[in-house]
Design a protein around this nucleic acid. Sequence first.
DNA 1: CGAGTGACAGATTTCAATATCTGTCACTCG
DNA 2: CGAGTGACAGATATTGAAATCTGTCACTCG
Lengths: 195, 195
Amino acid sequence: MSTEALTPDRILEATEEVLRRYGPGKATVVDVARALGVSHGSVYRHFRTKAALREAVTERWLEQAVTELAPLAEGPGPAAERLTTWLSALFAAKRRKAGGDPELFATYEVLIGESSAVVAEHVDHLVGQLARIIEDGHRQGEFAAPESGFTMTARAVFDATDRFHDPVHAAEWSAPDIDDAFAAVLALVLRGLRA
Amino acid sequence: MSTEALTPDRILEATEEVLRRYGPGKATVVDVARALGVSHGSVYRHFRTKAALREAVTERWLEQAVTELAPLAEGPGPAAERLTTWLSALFAAKRRKAGGDPELFATYEVLIGESSAVVAEHVDHLVGQLARIIEDGHRQGEFAAPESGFTMTARAVFDATDRFHDPVHAAEWSAPDIDDAFAAVLALVLRGLRA
DNA sequence: CGAGTGACAGATTTCAATATCTGTCACTCG
DNA sequence: CGAGTGACAGATATTGAAATCTGTCACTCG
């Protein structure tokens, strides 16, 4: 089955497929190899361990969210509005993924729990986007000067809204009053940022 | 072994002991009965199911935290200071319990996950204490009038600090920068509340 | 009478044998 | 040469039979 070259990308695609089909508990490297029509030894030539393979899949998946949100962070308009839009989009995207395909979401929850380093980097990217919005807001006189740097403040905003984007809270996202709760926290945060 | 009457309280104590010793996975009603020197049928005379028994233990444990914090919510002084003290005490207590006896904490994490209704009531109590502080702050002109009621605002404060009291985040509480993160969120929240 | 018992049925858990998987490496073959 | 192989050792997962547990209830006995 060597009609196509065995690239890391092809392996990652097959791994995603296997994870989607069998879930995180039953997806094996042998399954991935079988799906590609090669021996599992070949997979190990491209990824040193099963953990590295799963990490690469996780990285890919998280990257998607970052690029989806980037335009919202850079767009024009008042910072408060952009912040609202950005946080709402983050929340909506997470909810959509959690509600739309709960099994796949659960799979990624497991993967995320396995590789905290990858997640930390992803969070840093998101906080970076938040920091940019807040910095813009300050430049336009909309937001007060932060006491301890834009990144620290962005981090605080990210932490304060944790309940609305951290997958560990996914079960709470279908509660009837979750939108009110989100609006209340968002309002509190915006008041805290304003000049 | 009928030297003492078999009361719900004695059963609960024995259950706690058994949970502490064997953990949530291996603690059985038979174990509890054995520890009390009675048959397990007797335990079922006081608690309809094993789940009800566990719930009662959880309730008792959570109650403890509420009564510990109550004096801080009612004490004198500026509301901002009381809020800081209260939230810091909540965070400190959780950290102490998580770090001091991780196994026991893990046990209670499991119990908490089992009975969301009990937890919801407990959260309501805590939010009530927060609401009292915020209401006092408003009465003294320290805090602005909340847009959507004191309870809703208190809930927002509770949600915004979720990362620092929700057991699902316990693993993050030993990170080196967690105190800075807490201080940053607290500062953001206080700015959001101020008049 | 009524708190406590213990045997019971069906559900759940344990345990050990068996199968599968992970990661390595000497090897093949284009 | 070097991408891909497949047999292998040790680790992990599966399986089904046996043991234990949950919840009930007719019963005992002070």
